[in-house]
Design a binder for these strands. Structure first.
Lengths: 133, 133
DNA sequence: GTACACTATATGTATATCTCACATATATGA
DNA sequence: TCATATATGTGAGATATACATATAGTGTAC
């Protein structure tokens, strides 16, 4: 649903036309980054994703697990099973050199994107500076 | 293809794993913003999109025209045919109040996303500050 | 007078990505 | 034993993007 209910109400936008503002495949760099900090596994990584704007309440396991398997298939991460700890077995992921490279690529890509958003907001603010309450 | 060919080369990422960093449905706010500046039409709007990172060389008409028709269907813009000028008839679009509202919603959403990207980059820079050449 | 480039709008389809719902299994405590 | 928390996954459908193609008016160079 809307993040800004009052604006939606003001302009009579009833249906959720949801300007999501989400970035495509953004889980990927997030997972790579977390793994670069410390080896980890799906369930743990999933819980960390709210730091980057993913919904804390009900995170979606589908994207996380599928992305992790994809990253391993392509050689960006390696996994091994951990059956030592309590509870069900965990699939522990660690970053490869190639995965580190992909993270660096993502970082540059994200920096570029941030600049574009900054430009949009600058022009937007300039255009509507008088109309602000 | 890659925006950063040298990094891709360095880490031997051959296939285009393309971290696109693109935001979902980003054409929509761009079109709304341009129309908010001045009434316009598809072909002209398409040419302006490179200001927000869309490829200048071969822009994709499909997204532009389909988004414009969607925006009109939902009442965010109005259109009329302009047969006066030279060349084929243009479909001129103008913003409605509802469309202005959607633009404001988008702006807030984009500001939020920019913050998230900033946080990612801050943590990334902190993590890899020593490794920078 | 016609071939070509430029302007202008639009659709068709394949692929990529996301969302939602569901399925499975292990350990732990009531 | 039954609910709950942990843990990993898949399937189907919806949505978004990418790439290709279709149609047509206008100006101009030959």
């Amino acid at each position: 649903m809307f993040e800004n209910g009052h604006l939606a109400k003001k302009y009579k936008i009833k249906k959720c036309e949801c300007p999501s503002g989400k970035m495509m495949r953004f889980v990927e760099p997030c997972l790579l980054f977390f793994i670069s900090q410390h080896v980890s596994y799906g369930y743990e990584l999933m819980a960390k994703l709210d730091r980057f704007g993913f919904p804390k309440a009900n995170p979606d396991p589908a994207m996380v697990y599928r992305t992790l398997r994809y990253l391993e298939k392509e050689g960006f991460v390696l996994s091994r099973w951990d059956t030592k700890g309590a509870g069900p077995a965990k699939r522990i992921y660690e970053l490869t050199q190639k995965g580190l490279g992909l993270l660096h690529l993502w970082a540059q890509s994200i920096a570029t994107r941030k600049k574009v958003l900054g430009k949009f907001l600058a022009l937007y603010d300039e255009r509507f500076k008088d109309k602000k309450k």
